[in-house]
Amino acid sequence: MYSRAYKTAVAAPPLAWVAVFLLAPYAFLFCYSFWTVSQQVIVHHWNLANYRQLLDNAMYPTVLLRSMRIAGSVTLLSLLLSFPLAYYLSFRSRRKELLYQLVIIPLWVSYLVRAYAWKTILGSDGVLNTLLQYVGVIEHPAEFLLYSPFAVVLTLTHIYTPFTFLPIYASMEHIPRNLVEAAQDLGAAPMRTFWTVIFPLSLPGALAGATFAFVLSLGDFLAPLLIGGPSGIMISNVVVSLFGAAYNWPLGAAISASLLLLVLALLFLVERIEKKLSFS
């Protein structure tokens, strides 16, 4: 239907742009990861020293594992919060449009600002501590609230819950209502209907939401810097310091390249599971 010229004209510009500004940069990341720094100068001498260092120095695997634990907790909590919310909105609420907008609105509040708000709440002279002292629950401020992995998990959960909610809600909205009615007509109790009809059919949405929450919180470095303290340092903070004061771009690139490969492997896996879910 469309001429060859038309197809070329729409395909060529984005292809060229993406090749230069996405593909080439990701390739550079891998190139740098095989180079080294000597006397504050990056030497284009190909070797595996950076990757060997990542495996030999126990600090890197430890921080990566901690990041994965934090990201895993965020994912789990976001799912636990958004699943009942999505179910309520999709199946029980009469004002779903309004409530849907209410879930979306926090997404429009700046990421930084929300992280900062948690700092105001959790700090030693923050809202929560002074409130607890005011009503007499505690005498001295609880210091463990801020500057801890807990604070990072709480903040990231707050940020990614709406993101997890969206695909779950979308997949629940796509469930044919006559399936649910059939289950009820055949005498299934609401709980049974939920577990045998609604839950399995909303799994693809949950998977998409969980992937989003996990990957984005795994690579986060702003919340840990702002409210994580020394015990809340994540893998991207190590990268930031290597690209800043520590000045070792190649090592930082090796960590980022490993992170990129990890994420790509995860996305590949998720796509396989998604296909299986939609066939069964």
């Binding site: 940069p25 990701y26 690579g219 470095f221 930082g252 980022s256 994420v263």
Partner: peptide, 8 residues
């Protein structure tokens, strides 16, 4: 994660 795109 934004850090990977930013660094690249």
């Amino acid at each position: 994660p934004g850090i990977i795109t930013g660094l690249s």
